[in-house]
Design a protein around this nucleic acid. Structure first.
Lengths: 348, 348
DNA sequence: CGTCATTGATACGAAATACATATGCCATAA
DNA sequence: TTATGGCATATGTATTTCGTATCAATGACG
């Protein structure tokens, strides 16, 4: 079975004339006749009814023609398909992300990527940073949004920092009314709530995030009172709303718009979480390269506006999702000096 | 673009080892490597990531693999498809039929054909006999059920007579009650209704059927009084039911089960309509040949039982469609001496 | 009714392609 | 370091495919 022969078949069927068909195929008539005969022999059917003066398709030939021409079209579309795949215009993208990214980076990034490459099937999967690294090495995901604190990235991975966001305190509105917490100039001193119960992820659910907070408390000489644990951001905010304790969360959590929760900036140097994109340095999917480009573009765009207003993602990025701005968040400038692959290795 | 190369690609992708893949393809490793390289060159993409010790698909290669393997499967299924097409097991069948056949031959024939060849798409089209012959020559239909009276079939056509059915009179029930027509021994003398209005097809709608009836009247020296014309059997029976006149129709019309209509056999030698199958002798579609076989089978089956009971299609053919029997109808014996093509030429 | 032009099939030599043997280079394992 | 496994490269050979020349048959035209 030969593609060329099938092409011959279709051409002869279109022309119904061996001579003209041969001309269209840039060849002479004899080998064309032979090829058609060979094809008929191979399929054990007569495709054409030759009357020494006229050529017509047999009923069987007519049915086969429709199949074959469809097949041929798909085969001929294959180089174009390969080109699109190589450019990352079509294909698939499996992206992991930490739960906090769901409230700042992820919506903008996916929105921009989706309108730029609508033919790419994007699969999102929430995972902790270390699980994402593992999944990346195993090929389960193509890229990931992680919080890289204290992590040593494997040398086979590239990393691009995207967002620095200071944490704010989420305290029950009721505490504020009752004077249980003191807010000075719209800020909270962490020492004032040292004795209050802290709502937090269990460490296994978000080790990087967990460590940032415990380190922060430790640097103020505070041993936090763990009041309740929850594995989802929404749940943490719900617990705060119910007065079960306070929490330290990214400012972007304001987007949740939960009633009964007051978000207050922290006095002094608040803890900052960095979120960035990781992918395999070797053998990256073209769709990933396009994603990196877009992520880098977001960083530049936000970075340029960042200078004047001090604002970042929330207002700076085309207003993709409605919601509260992120006055404390700042997108990291894309690093143009990394030769398109970001840097890899020990972070922080 | 070469099918062999695509096959190579799929095999290497399955084995992820050029040596084993070459073995499976009954060849040595070097030409396989070359072919894969050539394919990659042709598509301008790297399909495999060779690490001198290991072979892995690139993300692009993975996506292309799914497309290519699907394509390859379809191509490899092509010989089987051709075989089925040649056997008439799949494909299409466009069948013309005269309106009268709708009440006797057509249901049985299509029912049997449909269960035997469920994969064949059957298209039915009601046409007069002469239009069917024309459509047959032009290739618009593959076969036709016609009433071949006084027609000279083109020598390129084959014909197989299938059903001889005497006409019966359809008279308004009211006429019978009122004594307007006289029925003796359940039969009607045509002379007794010579003055009554006759409901009939216009000649252009059913020339063969029309001519049989006018010839019948002429042979009895009667000039029929044309009362009303209608182009559908149902309409004719409706007009009879409304008392607008009487009609001569195939006995199978009893299936309509119309109230107010009495079907009465004709005294003496009633007119008989012959219905048969025509198809192109040259270049017949395999589906048509299967249809001819089934039609011949119906003829034989009915013919065998016909000897004792004098009955034909209605009871003789497995009771496909419920309805009144056709005591006067008789399926024609299939002619085994016609070398599988029936006869062609001038018909009576 | 005979001649000519057209068109698809056949024959054979030539070009192109594909294949196998031999070998090289590099990575991994002992 | 040595040995082995494994993909790439080089080159001669075989198979396939193509083009030129020719034939046979059919329909058109005078």
């Amino acid at each position: 079975m030969n593609l060329r022969r099938l092409k011959f078949f279709v051409t002869v069927a279109e022309e119904l004339h061996f001579g003209r068909a041969a001309e269209r195929l840039c060849m002479t008539q004899p080998p064309l006749s032979q090829a058609i005969l060979a094809l008929e022999e191979e399929l054990s059917v007569t495709l054409f009814k030759r009357t020494k003066r006229n050529v017509a398709l047999t009923p069987v030939g007519e049915h086969l023609l429709s199949h074959v021409s469809k097949l041929l079209q798909e085969v001929e579309a294959l180089p174009g398909l390969a080109r699109q795949l190589a450019r990352g215009e079509i294909g698939s993208l499996k992206l992991g992300f930490v739960t906090t990214a769901d409230y700042n980076l992820l919506p903008e990034l996916i929105s921009h990527y989706g309108v730029t490459f609508p033919e790419v099937k994007v699969t999102l999967k929430e995972m902790t940073s270390d699980l994402q690294v593992e999944a990346l090495m195993q090929g389960d995901i193509n890229a990931g949004l992680i919080i890289p604190l204290h992590q040593t990235l494997h040398t086979s991975l590239s990393y691009l920092p995207l967002l620095h966001e200071p944490l704010v305190a989420a305290v029950p509105e009721e505490w504020v009314r009752a004077g249980r917490v003191e807010i000075v100039n719209g800020r909270l001193k962490i020492q004032d709530v040292a004795e209050e119960p802290l709502v937090l992820f269990p460490r296994r659910s978000a080790p990087a995030f967990h460590d940032i907070i415990t380190t922060y408390f430790a640097s103020h000489g505070i041993e936090p009172v763990i009041g309740q644990e929850a594995i989802q951001m929404q749940t943490i905010i719900s617990l705060v709303s119910a007065g079960m304790g306070f929490a330290l969360v990214p400012g972007s959590l304001r987007r949740l718009g939960r009633m009964g929760v007051r978000y207050v900036g922290l006095e002094g140097k608040p803890p900052v979480i960095e979120t960035g994109l990781v992918w395999r340095k070797e053998d990256p999917s073209p769709t990933v390269l396009r994603l990196v480009e877009i992520a880098r573009g977001l960083g530049e765009q936000a970075g340029e506006e960042d200078g004047g207003t001090g604002e970042g993602l929330g207002e700076g990025l085309g207003g993709g999702a409605p919601g509260v701005g992120l006055p404390e968040a700042a997108l990291v400038h894309a690093r143009r000096d990394l030769n398109g692959h970001g840097h890899a290795g020990r972070l922080d």
